[in-house]
Amino acid sequence: MKDVRQAAWRWPLLWLSLLMAATVGLPHFEAALRVIEPGARAVIYTQAPFGGLLVEHLLLVAAAAGLSIALGVGAAVLVSRPWGKDFLPLAGQVASIGQTFPPVAVLALAVPALGFGALPTLFALTLYGVLPILRNSLAGLRGIDPAVLEAARGMGMSPVQVLWQVELPLALEVIIAGIRTSVTINIATAALGSTIGASTLGDPIIAGLVNGNTAYVVQGAVLIGLLALTVDSLFEWLQVGAATPSAQPART
């Protein structure tokens, strides 16, 4: 068990260093990139610095994640309270059915509603990102042994204390898995945001596809790929670290 924990931080470090190296160093690979695209005038994407695009991409994903977590976990908590139970089946079904919608469709439909730019992108990312978090939060909260909750109430914990000290910590592992899914999907969808006017790491790829410049496309692809791998391995590390030896006892 210790070995897994010790090894788990190495991957994020590896991907992160590669990502940083690529962000800073790609412009220096002009010669190599020219091999891919011998005919173009410009081989290095210069419309915007890679670092800036990276930061914008991360900001979009992080902002959406923050909103999604608040909405998703919040909604799950509300519908699992005694007075909100009426809405529980609906919430569960919406979370399931909503995930069958392809993210690109949600992104596209945000434009008629909110125009172009970062706002509809954020909206679509948040909307789509809420679903896995909501689903997992519901599953996590409902999977807690009822005897534990009964004992907590019986010992005199107030409802808020039960939620904060017992329910959420016990559901945390499952919720984090949901956040991981949400963020992973959103990193990909944010890249598509370039098509609706947001400024993200998808810009070089779209520019490359539009102009027929493969070198641009490769640069953008490498950066996004490394970003995705970094974030995913970070979550893996987080999940391994959050897994306490207290496996939940099976409900009898």
Partner: peptide
């Protein structure tokens, strides 16, 4: 409830 001790069959021990 804080004045009363409560023990149940499935213990309800907090697993975390």
């Amino acid at each position: 409830r804080r004045r009363i001790g409560y023990a149940i069959q499935s213990t309800g021990l907090f697993p975390h």
